[in-house]
Design a protein around this nucleic acid. Structure first.
Lengths: 140, 140
DNA sequence: CTTGGTGCAAATGATTTGCAAGCCT
DNA sequence: AGGCTTGCAAATCATTTGCACCAAG
């Protein structure tokens, strides 16, 4: 499978550039996370990664998410009363909306929110490191 | 202490109006939470409430927070890697900024954020139930 | 080689729950 | 009276960690 090989090579590259050690487990996990269009939690990642590479343990998924988050490659989403979810660090700034009926996590595109946040923060004498907005809503 | 008595009576009233049973534990807990200017977690609440009323258990603090949250009297703040914190449901809409150096939780006043949120949500075909923004920042 | 990564299983920490007893309405 | 609430301790759930072994640079 040529595409898969190419992709995995890319992820190895990404890890290397971030100054992280490249291990098969990390490459597998990051491959799965990159292909996910939802926002998987550790259990999801563990199961899907396992299908591809059965040397991966849950502990390593946790450790890898932590490492990738610190390296700024991954964003951790902490929502109420549910395990944390993850996404590859988005190129395009966006926030999230939780559909209360379906449980879906919808991405809110655009930089408007980010702009308002940094204006508001600077009015208080702060500079933003990160921000995250979660909207809980229902379809009209 | 006349003020305390008056206050506690108020809280009993609030509980009654929300259709909730009035117990001494609930009155004590809500008294403590109302007087807090920080955003206490369950452990904080438990310890402070204990000083006032030693019949309260941690389990009851958890259960009471849950009941009050459902009744819309209390807001639960879920931040990364830390136990949940609580505040009385704010009259004046506000969000939160975490000072990364001091750990302080600063309130961001104003309705600007809320307005943007509901505009953005309605553009996606949703109506907001609640929203919460957390900014992580450092002093300039 | 040397440092850091991994699997496994046990440990932790926050929150929840089963149960018997007690209190609110 | 009858059902909701409580305290206590045990249970649960997500996440973390100690340790012996293995692999990346």
């Amino acid at each position: 499978m040529v595409t898969a090989l190419t992709d995995e090579t890319d992820y190895r590259q990404i890890l290397r550039e971030a100054g992280l050690r490249v291990t098969p487990q990390r490459a597998s996990i990051i491959t799965i996370l990159s292909e996910a269009d939802d926002h998987p939690n550790v259990e999801d990642l563990y199961e899907k990664t396992r299908a591809l590479d059965d040397t991966v343990s849950v502990a390593t998924v946790y450790r890898t998410m932590s490492v990738l988050e610190n390296a700024g490659l991954v964003r951790k989403l902490v929502l109420d009363d549910a395990p944390a979810r993850y996404e590859m660090m988005p190129q395009t700034d966006h926030d999230h909306l939780v559909d209360l009926d379906s449980g879906d996590l919808v991405e809110i595109p655009g930089t408007e929110i980010a702009e308002l946040m940094s204006r508001v923060a600077s009015e208080l004498g702060y500079e933003i490191v990160s921000h995250h907005t979660v909207i809980r809503a229902r379809k009209i």
